[in-house]
């Protein structure tokens, strides 16, 4: 299975294009690292590939067919740098987690998610704890590609190691395609099978 972004051009409002005719492809089981200086559109590219934005020109294709509009669980999921923004502050985390079906207890155990956290609200947990919830939620059965937008940038080294260790095992087991966005070259070197950069 292949996820492709073909000739993608995008601009916010009437401003200059953030992305201009960008091509990117990602296959199942592949781990691609995406690197660029700040403000060059890494997050925007992830948002476009996951369907949060529509490109001005170009297309997002899954197995050669346009991915959007898409009904039901999207096979391309995005994990954000700031997990607190994608979890409803008024909903207990257990409810957020099980919105699309019962959570896999094995997955929760591997992510070190404690049972008592399920009753808590997002404002009551740390960024690292919330990021584990976001990963558990994004790794639903229908997911084939995971776009990780600087998901461990704000976490301590131990938590970073735990999360990447889990994610690599899970990607291997399920043959997921990973797009890893990071400013850290050592991380990309260690995690990815291929690296690309967004040039000016």
């Amino acid at each position: 299975m292949t996820l492709e972004g073909k000739d993608i051009t995008f601009a916010y409002g009437k401003g200059a294009p953030v992305l201009d005719r960008v091509n990117i492809s990602l296959s199942s089981g592949e781990r691609v690292g995406l690197w660029a200086p700040s403000g060059r559109g890494k997050t925007t590219l992830c948002r476009l590939l996951a369907g949060y934005e529509r490109p001005r020109k170009g297309q997002v294709l899954l197995e050669g067919r346009p991915l959007f509009p898409h009904e039901g669980p999207c096979p391309v999921q995005m994990v954000w740098q700031h997990p607190e923004t994608v979890l409803d502050p008024l909903l207990p985390l257990g409810r957020s987690l099980e919105e699309t079906g019962p959570a896999d207890p094995g997955l929760l155990e591997q992510l070190h998610i404690r049972k008592e956290w399920l009753r808590r609200f997002p404002g009551e947990l740390s960024g690292g704890e919330l990021q584990r919830f976001c990963l558990a939620r994004a790794l639903q059965p229908a997911t084939r590609f995971l776009l990780c937008d600087e998901i461990t940038a704000m976490l301590d080294l131990v938590t970073q190691a735990q999360i990447w260790d889990f994610l690599l095992r899970e990607a291997e087991r399920r043959s997921l395609g990973l797009l890893v966005v990071s400013h850290s070259q050592p991380l990309l070197d260690r995690v990815c099978t291929r690296k690309i950069s967004l040039k000016e």
Binding site: A50, G51, Y52, G72, P73, C74, Q77, M78, W80, T85, V86, L87, D88, P89, E99, T100, R137, A138, Q140, A142
Partner: peptide
């Protein structure tokens, strides 16, 4: 709101 957009992508 990102949590509402994310819920849509998750198939809610």
């Amino acid at each position: 709101a990102p949590y509402l957009l994310a819920a849509e992508k998750l198939g809610v």
